Amino acid sequence: MRYLHLSTLFPRLVALLAVIFLVSCASLSSVADTSSIPGAQSNTSMANLPRLNGDATVVITVNDRPITIQVNGAAAPITAGNFVDLVNRGVYDGTVFHRVVREPQPFVVQGGDPQSTDPTVSPQLYGTGSFIDPKTNRPRYIPLEILGKGSSTPTYSQAGKVSPQLNHTRGAVAMARSQLPDSASAQFYIALQQLDFLDGNYAVFGYVTEGMDVVDSIQMGDRIQSAKVVAGLEHLQQP
């Protein structure tokens, strides 16, 4: 990962990266706990993953207020396809925003853990779940996908190797993952401010185009009431 000047930013980076990086203690983790699951590193073949061959628009409703996300399938076809597919399946409906970090400065809101809809699962475990593909009854993981500037083809599975076309500006929507590059599944986050030090290390696949004020108001424990694909579903290609 590329760091800024550590003399001034090290304390901030430690606090902020803890939100996205997986640690061994489940109560502190905030991304899918894939480190102990066989097959997490040897991710599902991309041929078996959904793709988005174009753009799509998703509307997420939180506290009766809409958040509109423009999903970029041209720059991130696998990542965007996975997200749109999960939205269309209703996977995100009822899921919890289990991490909200605004102090010491705005960072991210993070949610989308499918197991957070299960009343038998302890809230302490929110942030450790993945999407279980009903076809295989196994977690579905997607590779880290970064389209570099000046490139027509994304780079896969290589954190921090390219300068991305899709950056972590305020309102960027990206996939959360563990320290394994290819461990993203369902959980996503929305950047509350520009986060340059995450660029190239996490896969941005879209941006909030309306409702950023709603994102700013999200509190930990708030649920996604609904997530709908309102345009571009015809661009979703199933394996």
Rank of each mutant, 00 (worst) to 15 (best):
Ala184Leu: 09
Gly211Tyr: 14
Val109Tyr: 02
Arg140Lys: 07
Ser122Trp: 03
Ile78Pro: 03
Thr136Met: 04
Val214Asn: 13
Asp64Ile: 01
Val91Trp: 00
Ala176Leu: 02
Pro38Leu: 03
Pro164Asn: 10
Leu180Lys: 01
Pro114Phe: 05
Pro106His: 06
Val214Trp: 13
His168Thr: 07
Ser226Cys: 02
Ala56Leu: 11
Val109Pro: 00
Gln41Leu: 03
Ala40Thr: 15
Pro114Tyr: 12
Val208Gln: 04
Arg140Leu: 11
Ser35Glu: 13
Asp222Ile: 07
Val59Cys: 12
Ser157Phe: 11
Ala176Tyr: 03
Ser7Thr: 04
Ser35Met: 06
Arg170Ser: 06
Gly94Cys: 05
Arg99Cys: 03
Gln193Gly: 05
Thr136Ser: 15
Arg89Met: 06
Thr155Ile: 14
Thr128Glu: 08
Pro164Ile: 04
Met220Ser: 08
Tyr156Pro: 02
Ser30Pro: 01
Glu145Asp: 01
Val100Gln: 12
Ala203Tyr: 04
Asp133Glu: 08
Pro66Met: 08
Ala203Asp: 03
Val229Asp: 01
Thr44Val: 15
Lys149Val: 14
Asn43Phe: 00
Ser27Gln: 09
Val173Glu: 03
Thr128Ser: 14
Thr79Tyr: 05
Ala176Trp: 04
Leu233Ile: 15
Tyr3Lys: 11
Ser36Gln: 06
Ser226His: 07
Met220Gln: 15
Glu234His: 09
Pro66Arg: 08
Thr95Leu: 11
Asp222Ser: 13
Arg2Gln: 14
Ser45Lys: 14
Pro106Trp: 07
